[in-house]
């Protein structure tokens, strides 16, 4: 289904799945394929900035798949509806690692009910903190806290791991969901349009 460039508000849901081989050499062709799909359904210039954000999110999801998933394949699903673009990365590889954070005992999935509502600091540096908020036994939401950037010097503490931070910053909602019955890991980003 092709849509007129300004008909997003009334459109029905469009969904497509893309298979990624978890090979870094396949990243760029797949990235271009997914971006082309988005541009076909959101052709208006008004969505160009949102599609640029989706592109960076996809780069990070694919990079994350290569580096951390420990799975043979990953499914990237893209869903466009009248309100948002939803991008989900699914695999049956390694669960999101939630161990060894300051003042926290080792955590494993599914999480204990007593931890629901707690906030775990994932990364910390001089300009931002990244938190995982425990929403349920199987779901965490990522949130950023930012600080003003003053002068950067050789003694500044700057982190060198930006993947999760980029996905949290480029989306309106970013969460991880673990399904203990299927062993499926899902990272989902929602970009409001």
């Amino acid at each position: 289904m092709f849509l007129h460039k300004d008909t997003l508000a009334t459109m029905t849901e469009i969904k497509k799945e893309f298979i990624f081989s978890n090979d870094s050499l396949a990243m760029y062709p797949l990235l271009n394929e997914i971006i082309s799909f988005l541009k076909i359904h959101l052709p208006s210039e008004q969505y160009a900035f949102k599609i640029s954000n989706c592109k960076q999110i996809l780069i990070e999801l694919l990079t994350n798949a290569v580096k951390h998933s420990h799975a043979d394949t990953t499914v990237i699903s893209v869903c466009i509806n009248g309100r948002a673009i939803e991008i989900t990365k699914s695999d049956k590889g390694r669960k999101f690692y939630l161990n060894n954070y300051t003042s926290w005992p080792p955590l494993s999935w599914p999480l204990e009910k007593k931890y629901i509502g707690e906030k775990i600091k994932i990364y910390e540096d001089d300009i931002s903190n990244l938190y995982a908020i425990i929403k349920s036994e199987n779901r965490i939401v990522f949130e950023i806290e930012e600080y003003p950037i003053t002068k950067v010097t050789s003694s500044s503490n700057l982190l060198e791991h930006y993947g999760l931070l980029i996905m949290a910053k480029f989306s309106n909602e970013f969460f991880y969901l673990y399904n203990p019955e299927t062993n499926l890991n899902q990272f989902t980003t929602i970009i409001n349009v």
Partner: peptide, 21 residues
């Protein structure tokens, strides 16, 4: 360069810190 990922960005920040030192 067509795109930059977080791994490359992390390397760039590491290089900045080293250069500043």
């Amino acid at each position: 360069v067509a795109y930059v990922d977080s791994s490359f960005l992390g390397a760039l920040v590491s290089i900045l810190k080293y250069a500043m030192s």
